[in-house]
Design a protein around this nucleic acid. Structure first.
Lengths: 205, 186
DNA sequence: GCTTTAAAAAGTAAAGT
DNA sequence: ACTTTACTTTGCAAAGC
């Protein structure tokens, strides 16, 4: 029983040391993604829960840290895509996605699917588009979603297409290349979603 | 309206069996034309049948996995071919070794588009996995029958994990009634 | 955990014409 | 732009690392 007790202490100490590393990594990634401190704190709370529930075993600390940061951004309504978090993490996108799904399931985070509208303010500001374009893009997303176009589609690609369409309608045109760069999706995806959306909106141009 | 059960199609059947005898895969690989054997990469020898189409994984222990068949009958027919091929190599194989179906993959069509967002929330976020950023299908795990269903926006679905063809029928019935109860089908 | 095999669903991506 | 190829997800067995 003494051995077990010592083992627990050792495990706990190791966990605490790893927690320090995880928190510094979360801070580093959050800084380069310009994620607010309040969201970093949420990420740390989720990481602590994952640690307490022993979900780190068999997974890399950095992978769990990246996943919890990704989850926290979604929970706080300012999502970063897996592409974006993967760009500042040393863990690849596929692993981040798998770890996120595992953690979300085990901790019962009950995450709702990302609403593409959540990406509109940030993408539009990076593209220096006006408030008018944002309003129009949101309108396109709402209307086409009601018509059932969103099922199965990537939120970033969906938002990117709506922003591209809105920029045209508001005479503030951005090229598909410019939008694809900030949204981290290909021009082909923007083209496909754009065609569906303007058709559903009944726009001819 | 067509019953979604009538749209069920078996796409793949995985089964296991064995000839109860150790094999020298190196020599089997030499004598069996079309056999792929790379023990460094994978311990099993791969042998493909053409009619019916399937892939058999043959192991040193004499155990065999058959995959890719479109029906349970095709599994038996494919394995009969594999057994005969082994007999041609002077390997003793019993009359009809026991064949156990391990997994059946089926596809089906509900005939209506689905609002996956509403379904994810309606069926309960704790039971569903829907991450369109990672995969376009919604993952729905059933308890009875114990299978996993992938639902798509088109209304098409994939059911896997079942061991009998009827599992897919029961699963489709349950999915349809659950979606109808939630008013999400139509 | 990974390795290999098969097949479907639909979205996304990349490479070649 | 269009086609082809390929990768994402689910389920399962096999033997071995």
């Amino acid at each position: 029983r003494l051995r077990k007790w010592q083992e627990r202490i050792r495990t706990k100490d190791a966990g605490e040391r790893n927690l320090q590393f995880a928190l510094s990594e979360t801070d580093r990634m959050a800084s380069s993604l310009a994620i607010p401190r309040s969201v970093r704190e949420v990420a740390c709370v989720i990481y602590r829960r994952a640690l307490d529930e022993d979900l780190i075993r068999g997974r890399s600390i950095e992978g769990v840290a990246t996943s919890t940061l990704y989850a926290a951004c979604r929970m706080e309504g300012i999502p970063r895509s897996l592409e974006e978090v993967a760009a500042v993490s040393r863990v690849e996108r596929k692993e981040i996605g798998r770890t996120y799904r595992y953690v979300a399931q085990e901790l019962n985070l009950e995450m709702e699917p990302v609403n593409p509208k959540k990406y509109v303010p940030r993408f539009c500001s990076e593209l220096e588009l006006s408030e008018e374009v944002q309003v129009k893009a949101n309108e396109i997303i709402d209307t086409t979603t009601e018509k059932g176009l969103l099922s199965g589609k990537s939120p970033t690609g969906y938002a990117a297409a709506a922003i591209y369409a809105a920029s045209l309608l508001c005479n503030e045109k951005k090229t598909q290349r410019e939008v694809s760069d900030v949204a981290q999706v290909t021009e082909v995806t923007i083209r496909n979603r754009y065609q569906e959306q303007i058709e559903a909106m009944g726009i001819h141009e | 309206m067509t019953d979604p059960k009538d749209t069920i199609n078996i796409e793949n059947v995985v089964a296991s069996t064995g000839i109860g005898q150790e094999l020298d895969l190196q020599s089997v690989a030499m004598d069996l034309e079309g056999a792929d054997y790379d023990p460094e990469q994978f311990p099993g020898l791969v042998y493909r049948t053409q009619n019916p189409k399937s892939a058999a994984l043959i192991f040193r222990s004499g155990k065999i996995v058959c995959t890719g068949a479109k029906s349970t009958d095709d599994v038996h027919e494919s394995l009969r071919i594999v057994f005969d091929k082994l007999r041609e190599l002077q390997i003793q194989v019993n009359e009809d070794p026991e064949i156990v179906v391990q997994n059946i993959v089926t596809s089906a069509d509900l005939g209506r588009n689905l609002n996956l967002n509403a379904i994810a929330i309606g069926l309960g976020l704790e039971n569903i996995e829907y991450e369109p950023e990672q995969f376009p299908g919604l993952v729905y795990r059933l308890d009875e029958p114990e299978v996993v269903a992938l639902l798509f926006g088109s209304g098409k679905l994939v059911i896997t994990g079942g061991k009998k063809p009827v599992d897919a029928e029961h699963a489709v019935d349950k999915i349809v009634s659950r979606l109808e109860d939630l008013g999400l089908l139509e």
